[in-house]
Design a protein around this nucleic acid. Structure first.
Lengths: 326, 326
DNA sequence: TTGTATGCGTTATCAC
DNA sequence: GTGATAACGCATACAA
């Protein structure tokens, strides 16, 4: 048995297709009460469900928000996704997700093919890169020209609504706080420097912390950080008193590597991260980090896309056991 | 400027709409080379992108897979989502996510409204309940009757493809292994007993472990477990030597509570979990658990939905530092 | 093999 | 206020 269509409802109610459409989609509110009730009854009786894809074609736009993330199993992104999902649900929007695997080319390709879905909104949360990407820019421009709303997370030079997490400012405050606690010789564990988020956090931290600063690069993931720290020269490790990883995920990898190398945390080397993902409180010692209200970030992204004014995103220092005063 | 439509491509190439359609969607492969090339050129020149929603209307079905999860920020679900996303991407399917917040009624309501999108596939990963849910069953039945493919994760009595994680079997093996290591007095930290997954794991564990068994119920989350353990009678805590939490997320909450209460882990009370989410290796001590290949589970769900035969899901014991031999 | 014509389920523009 | 009817963008019988 096929699904009941609007035509069936109209026939059952003894009204025209147009009238039936008016009452079930509630656009133009002008429908006389007796007719209105008959249509509603017919729809209920037939268990009518509108076909959203058909609506999208007729209206020229869908009720979809597309969320582009680097990796949905990364707690940073899944927390944001939770916020997007909640806000979208409240606005009666459907969320589609797409994974870039941290590949700028793949991201551009995704945006390109996702346009085919005619989403109302596209939210880009994967890290921005310092290098321009012509294809991405072209696709976004085309999408926006055709009425799509774009929201980009993080500092960027794209001409769309953007949600700045003020990474540099927060990292600077963290660096200052750790310097105040007596740390002097730092290792910054960064992602690639063409990742804006990584660059801003590393640079901000250095500015705030002062002192000696060594920078090491690794993949922007737990394993990348783990490998980077495992590969560190013992001489370097002996010289530093704190590792600042540009994300909690990386900090966790760094701690694992330090342990594996027999280096006491925070006794010999302290560790700090960024994001305050759930694990930050559950590792031992609890991780000093910068708290970001990630779910709220996701909600704010949807708000922005819908043209509402989004709440400001406020970061907050979380000084925990991984960086005792010394 | 509006997007180029198929009609524009056809006109530009000097062929009919039908011919243009045939070459760009690749269905019936029969199109003479010269025409074919002209259409391709025209499409490229106009930067033509098919309108997926219109295709969905015309074809009567979309290229969408809908993923229903309890909470996307829970690592269990986000790992599965990563697998679903990967497999879907490979099959040229788009993934939409929906969040139930662990509410059976909301789940049913979601399924109901998600049907409006006419997805090809619906994957239900939220935990099954032992109590029947008429609305959910009605919606799923209707969806399936209209050609939709349903895949349900976990043991269940729903008449659709299902992916059994063999929770009871694995939990039993874990219980046996821990008994072999000398543990005798157990506390099982379970979710509600009408959650099939929780019930199976608790029951299987008890069967394998033998010995004394106390069962405590909490919300199926980190906070729920934390609260449950914080509320535990000291006398009970003094009597047990191991807590088995039915998920790693709960185990982590339990460990936090034990620490807060000043109880040494694993010195006074050992802890074991289930799932082997990423954090399991990063907490201290590393968590003994049952490894599930969660991303593979997600991929297998898509395989099943597409009528391919999915690889078997193999669990594996991971005995770690949280349960030393005694 | 190609083109014509019709249909997919809705919305929206008209007259009435 | 209501009802024909033409879009919306594409797929596909059927005829040529």
């Amino acid at each position: 048995m096929d699904a009941a269509k609007l035509e069936d409802v109209a026939r059952e109610a003894g009204v025209s297709l147009a009238t039936a459409s008016r009452v079930v989609n509630g656009s133009s509110r002008v429908v006389a009460e007796p007719y209105r009730q008959r249509v509603l009854d017919a729809a209920a009786k037939l268990d009518y469900r509108p076909n959203r894809t058909a609506q999208a074609v007729a209206r020229g736009t869908s009720n979809t928000v597309t969320l582009v993330v680097s990796d949905i199993s990364d707690p940073f992104f899944s927390a944001i996704a939770a916020g997007v999902a909640r806000a979208a649900s409240a606005a009666d929007l459907v969320v589609t997700i797409a994974i870039t695997e941290r590949d700028p080319d793949k991201e551009a390709e995704l945006v390109r093919s996702l346009r085919e879905l005619r989403p109302r909104v596209m939210i880009l949360t994967g890290s921005r890169f310092t290098t321009a990407h012509p294809l991405l820019e072209k696709e976004l421009r085309g999408y926006a020209e055709q009425g799509g709303r774009v929201v980009v997370l993080g500092r960027n030079s794209l001409p769309y609504s953007s949600l700045d997490l003020r990474n540099a400012e927060a990292a600077e405050a963290l660096g200052r706080a750790l310097a105040d606690r007596g740390y002097r010789r730092f290792l910054v564990l960064a992602g690639r420097h063409d990742i804006v988020t990584s660059y801003d956090r590393a640079e901000g931290f250095a500015r705030g912390a002062g002192g000696e600063m060594t920078t090491v690069f690794g993949e922007f993931s737990r394993e990348g950080a783990y490998r980077a720290v495992m590969g560190l020269d013992p001489e370097v490790l002996g010289r530093i008193d704190l590792i600042f990883a540009v994300s909690d995920v990386m900090a966790v990898g760094a701690i694992a590597a330090l342990r594996e190398r027999g280096i006491a945390v925070p006794g010999q080397v302290a560790v700090a991260g960024f994001d305050d993902i759930a694990v930050a409180r559950d590792v031992t010692p609890p991780l000093t980090t910068v708290h970001l209200p990630l779910e709220m970030v996701g909600e704010a992204a949807v708000d922005l896309a819908l043209g509402r004014n989004a709440p400001a995103i406020e970061w907050k220092l979380e000084i925990r056991g991984s960086t005792p005063a010394r």
